[in-house]
Nucleic acid binder design. Structure first.
Lengths: 344, 344
DNA sequence: GTTAGCACTCACCGGCATAGAGTGCTAACA
DNA sequence: TGTTAGCACTCTATGCCGGTGAGTGCTAAC
């Protein structure tokens, strides 16, 4: 069977209507509401065809039709007009740029917040990954008698700092010396490349003082090799409770439980490193748990380097047009902002 | 009317049963389940008395009785036996102390997490407030050609660091000099005491270079005077969805919406600076929005200085005994831990 | 003072009929 | 040959009804 013009028009109308109303769409409603120039009976015939072709589902015999994942895919790829996000929700973006945030984590967090507020879905943001970034500079700063701050600057501009305990009898000069050594050893390497054996070797041959430096080295080692958790921020988790499909408590709970599976979401979000916005609809998702949801995601960068991803998750009945354009804009805005702060 | 021994015993049984089952308790059930040595008819008479005295409510005529806020208050003050938290959930605490967390924020966050996991309610943690802490030490650290890290150590041991943009032609020595000046100006003062005019004055008289330092000073001023948000962490927001009273979607939503009111919760949590654990039940709460919930809270400290508060929020039908003892233990453990890290 | 007994109340549940939205099919029409 | 009006049919949602059971208050006897 052919997906001719008229079928597409009808399908589009059904999708539009369903995205708006969340109610199965009937032929009569369609004929009345949209000026298609054909009767409900004709629409019925076409709808039967569309169902046969896999674009529509029927919850039960005497209900209207509902778009399938395949229909949404067609919609996202061909039918929808991506709006210009800059004009929409301008106030949010203004707010975003007004607040001057210097720490990368804050910017990321802020982005997640705004994304969830604009889209009304749940936003997910993967924080910058350090393991493959190059260390540019390491410095130990004396903070207190027993505390020092280990500051590691990376080539992507991200700063990682950790407070570490130090023996009381180390002075600033010693810390400075150690900083130089650390730089010699690790500057230019990635976090993954760090070999702590180097450090131990070094400690043995150079610092005769032995036990004195032990605790310091331990702390350093721990900080440098600290297992990086799969960090993912979620915002607006309860947004979906306002959507009609989650008025069913069981469905709402299922969704909220899904959000606890940070690992899954993390994997999902980091597995697509496509350029631009990527949309994964229902059963297209690689994970069974996600088959009732759609995920819209994009990567953000500093310069050319991909740092992490942002995304939103919601029902397959999603406002794709608005969501995709928002995502597109936010990813670009975020990249631009981070690049202006830390790039080069 | 007198609240004699038998009435108390019956009340206790009702509260225990209701906390466990969430179902209104009837006289027959009570007589059967608890060995009170009296018949259901007698219990009925006593229950009528207890209702008259304000300790019991009746959802409708043909239902059992439910404890009132007044009953819970009596229960918390007199009846319940506070269990020893150390024995309960020992594995959590072990986990808590095993993970070595050096940043205060991390410790706080971790505490919230664990609290919500143990109590199965929603935990709230107010992060340490800086405004009234004394600045011990300020330091500017050169990180990059255009970036420096402003590190401020406070007397409570909390470290605040902010990345700031600096003109390219400032070298480490200059930063060091400025650090000394900053220390002279602000060490020993609280964040509230900071007067930026001092800094501007200083800049005019000492640094003739003018425009060169402008951006630096601006950044500094901004960092130092940065509006401190009312930071409150929430964890386990969706825990309550497992409780029978929130199977009603409207109630669940009301609760989740309440959690969005961070300001309210913040005020609630910071207003009680009592020593030890404080319990606020239903209508005792100063805010109307909270009249259906109970809040158990405590403060945490470094040494003698109160830093912030931790608390949990849940239905008035709460496992007070477990919750109070957990809270007591956590507050003490947290204080002890922070003091050992940063105290003195 | 305690308790057995009883009439009464009220939420809850399953069954049933009805309304309404929507469908597929047929036959007539342009 | 495609389109449409009409109609019988399907299925869900809603509301009504009566029975059931848990629980109560009251009374009278112990």
């Amino acid at each position: 069977m052919q997906l001719d013009d008229r079928k597409v028009k009808i399908l589009q109308a059904i999708i539009d209507d369903f995205i708006f109303s969340a109610e199965p769409v009937g032929s009569r409603t369609l004929a009345k509401k949209y000026n298609l120039g054909i009767s409900s009976a004709t629409i019925r015939n076409e709808m039967a065809d569309l169902e046969e072709m896999g674009y529509l589902d029927q919850p039960h015999t005497s209900a209207g039709r509902v778009p399938s994942d395949k229909a949404y895919r067609l919609y996202v790829d061909k039918l929808m007009k991506v709006r210009n996000a800059q004009n929409l929700d301008a106030e949010y973006f203004k707010k975003f740029f007004k607040t001057r945030l210097s720490q990368v984590e804050q910017v990321i967090y802020h982005t997640a917040k705004i994304l969830s507020e604009i889209t009304k879905y749940t936003s997910m943001v993967v924080a910058p990954q350090l393991k493959s970034t190059v260390i540019k500079h390491i410095q130990l700063v004396h903070v207190d008698r027993q505390l020092a701050l280990l500051v590691i600057a990376t080539s992507s501009g991200i700063l990682k700092d950790t407070l570490i305990a130090i023996p009381e009898d180390i002075d600033s000069d010693s810390l400075h010396k150690i900083s130089i050594i650390l730089n010699d050893l690790y500057a230019g390497k990635t976090f993954d490349d760090i070999d702590l054996e180097d450090l131990k070797e070094f400690q043995k041959t150079i610092f005769r003082s032995g036990a004195l430096f032990d605790s310091l080295m331990d702390a350093l080692a721990q900080s440098l090799k600290q297992k990086e958790e799969k960090e993912i921020y979620l915002e607006g988790a309860t947004n979906i409770l306002h959507l009609p499909e989650y008025q069913d408590l069981v469905k709402a709970k299922t969704f909220l439980n899904l959000l606890e599976e940070k690992d899954l979401l993390y994997t999902m979000l980091t597995s697509t490193e496509v350029d631009g916005v990527s949309v994964s609809i229902g059963r297209e998702n690689p994970f069974a748990e996600l088959r009732d949801y759609s995920i819209v995601s994009a990567t953000y960068r500093i310069g050319d380097k991909v740092l992490g991803s942002i995304g939103i998750i919601g029902p397959t009945r999603m406002e794709y047009s608005k969501t995709v354009s928002t995502m597109d804009f936010m990813a670009k805005a975020l990249s631009q902002y981070l690049t202006s702060l830390y790039g080069k």
